[in-house]
Amino acid sequence: MSIDLPLIWAGLIAFAVLAYVVLDGFDLGIGILFPFLDSKADRDLAMNSVAPVWDGNETWLVLGGGGLMAVFPLAYATLLPALYAPIIAMLLGLIFRGVSFEFRGKTERGRWLWDVGFAGGSMVAALAQGITLGALVQGIEVDNRAYAGGWWDWLTPFTLLTGLSVLVGYALLGATWLFMKTENGLARQARAAAWLTGGALLVLMGAVTLSSAFLFPHYVERWFSWPALLFTLFMPVLLLACIAVFVRGLVRGHDSHPFLATIGLFVLGFLGIAISFYPWMVPPHVTIEQAAAPDSSLAFLLVGALILIPLILAYTGYAYWVFRGKVDPDEGYH
């Protein structure tokens, strides 16, 4: 077959993961910032700003997981046992975070529990996702179609650094989302949080890039080989452009610019990782080609994906459009 189905699917899975990271990233970011907001009214409003959309955002994670099993079963079957503890921690975090949306408004006495659950669950999930990313970057031992490493391989200074980076990155997404969706006091808090987390994220991204360059020199080779070199050269320019839009937006109060610039930062980081990985699916032993299911599986699901993903994007966009504009404090859900 002339069409490279595994490569198309690697692209689609990468798109699903990126969509998840950006979309659920700002929901989780709200959870991370939650305990630092001034008043209960602020916390209610912050939560309401994502209540209608969080569920759809989280569905991209199911597509990432389910899709991986469908089209790269070997990657699914080796990654998840290798990352057993962080994955379970992430799932438990997401449970607490998800139910808190509903439970929090159903009780006076127990609200503190779901406040803690919402914030704690979001933080644990973000940290676990960052650690997962780091563990993947540093490589997974695979032998005879099974995970062959130890139970604590995922826990290193490097993965803790990536965990912290994702946590801070999500907080930044959440802060800029709030800056876009709210007014007055809450928007001011969001702006302060955006300055703080934005600065921290740049430092952390730098640290991750440098340490992966030192720890895993094979990635550096890839960055400076053609055609990845093109991206490596433009990267600093694009990065500076994002930072400029971000700073200007915060200073001048362009509501949506900081949020969009932050998404830009995430896309750049994600592309950087994607370029480093190619052609691996699970570095450094399993390639996209090796991990892929047979073409008949890939083709069967691709037909549905090509029809349904545009539809999904359309009605997801519609749902966002319905809830466009600033969140109204009087239109309370709870």
């Binding site: 099993m69 469908a70 699901l301």
Partner: peptide
């Protein structure tokens, strides 16, 4: 998962694409 993924995975993929997003989106 490794052994049945090529068969069961796409079915679950269709579940996510045709059902989960629809529910969650609306």
């Amino acid at each position: 998962s490794d052994k049945t993924g090529p068969i069961l995975g796409p079915l679950m993929g269709y579940e996510v694409l045709s059902a989960f997003f629809l529910e969650a989106g609306f």
